[in-house]
Design a binder for these strands. Structure first.
Lengths: 201, 201
DNA sequence: GCCGCCATCTTAACAACGTTAGGAGACCGC
DNA sequence: GCGGTCTCCTAACGTTGTTAAGATGGCGGC
């Protein structure tokens, strides 16, 4: 059956085209424009074809969430060229918030509740690992032993998420949000440094 | 026209009943159950009646958001009985996150993007004022001059929001989220304190 | 006391959504 | 060439927010 290979390739190809079309619509026109019929129209198929590749809309969205996290992780790792560990952490904060501002709709579904907690956590894990690596390097460089490493990670993660959301939701502008994220992270790190070493003489 | 007064009262009454029904549905069954027809059924009217009191669903949801923020502000101010300013701030963090955990669906629409940025900001203003008051008191008590007070407020606000969302989205449990929020705030405050006074001798 | 008006409520409908069923048609192995 | 499978489309269902058009009923003026 030589054709079955081609068929499988075609299947995978249209599946990919669907994802790309969905991503394009999402980024350019937002979540309300992201409908099954609209996606189908863009890939020049009828709506039910989409269901041959994805069980339902949530499954398709989950794919976009995964894509978003991979994209984000790639951009964050790009900041790994910076030699100074402190600046690298500042860059992480800045780039995280920038990503939320550059891809507002993608960021929105990445953190919305359309996908359930487990899936989201699994999708976000590689990105969090980047943070863990950096924080480990930082704590080594400064000889700071964090009383609870995971807790510190979650705090930073939550802080970045919250401040990025401030920018994303329009409470503050994106530039300001990036500045806030840097200041917040810097302040947190300073706090942990002085927690390890007694604060005053 | 003696009757017009009663009519106006009746109008206001059913309007209130609609809001209460909507709130009840939202808190008990979540956003997906919050439909116009469902609300109308609960107040024993037909669906179009709702549109005599609210321009559209978003306007009704905005009302719920306002209600949510009033509720939250009330709960946060309850923490104002604590005499020690530092503990009062810790209570603020803890209660904020607790609210998000106690009213997940309400919290969700309060910070969702169904309502636009301006409306949301206006609804959240009183709650933020509570934070501003506490932070002012703290900086006075510790003789710390924050280089940018508003920035510090936004950082705390964003941090609390982010960590509460971690709990709300199920990334971490609610108890853990409360602990994280307290640790985060404490670390931030320590960071600002040691920024004002030179860190090491 | 009756008539007419105005406010109110309901039924019915529209467009769009996610999703599924059933049939038409092309393509492959034999 | 034939039978079966695989793919695709049309049509439909149920639900959503929202609007239009009629029925109903109470109030004020005569």
């Amino acid at each position: 059956m030589p054709t079955s290979g081609r068929r499988a390739r075609e299947r995978a190809s249209t599946r990919e085209r669907i994802i790309e079309a969905a991503l394009h619509i999402l980024e350019n026109e937002g979540t309300t424009a992201l409908t099954i019929r609209r996606i189908a129209t863009d890939v020049e198929y009828s709506a039910p074809v989409v269901y041959q590749h994805f069980a339902n809309k949530d499954a398709l969205v989950l794919e976009l969430v995964g894509h978003g996290h991979r994209l984000m992780t790639a951009e964050l790792q790009q900041a790994a060229t910076e030699p100074a560990i402190d600046r690298r952490l500042m860059l992480l904060a800045s780039e995280y918030v920038r990503f939320a501002g550059d891809h507002p709709h993608l960021y929105q579904i990445m953190n919305g509740d359309a996908v359930d907690a487990d899936e989201r956590q699994r999708a976000a894990a590689p990105t969090i690992d980047v943070l863990k690596d950096l924080l480990t390097a930082w704590s080594d460089a400064h000889d700071v032993v964090l009383t609870d490493f995971d807790e510190a990670c979650e705090i930073i993660w939550g802080t970045l998420y919250g401040i990025a959301s401030l920018g994303h939701l329009g409470t503050v502008g994106n530039d300001r949000a990036r500045r806030l994220a840097q200041q917040a992270l810097q302040t947190l790190l300073r706090g942990w440094r002085t927690a390890a070493r007694p604060e005053r003489a």
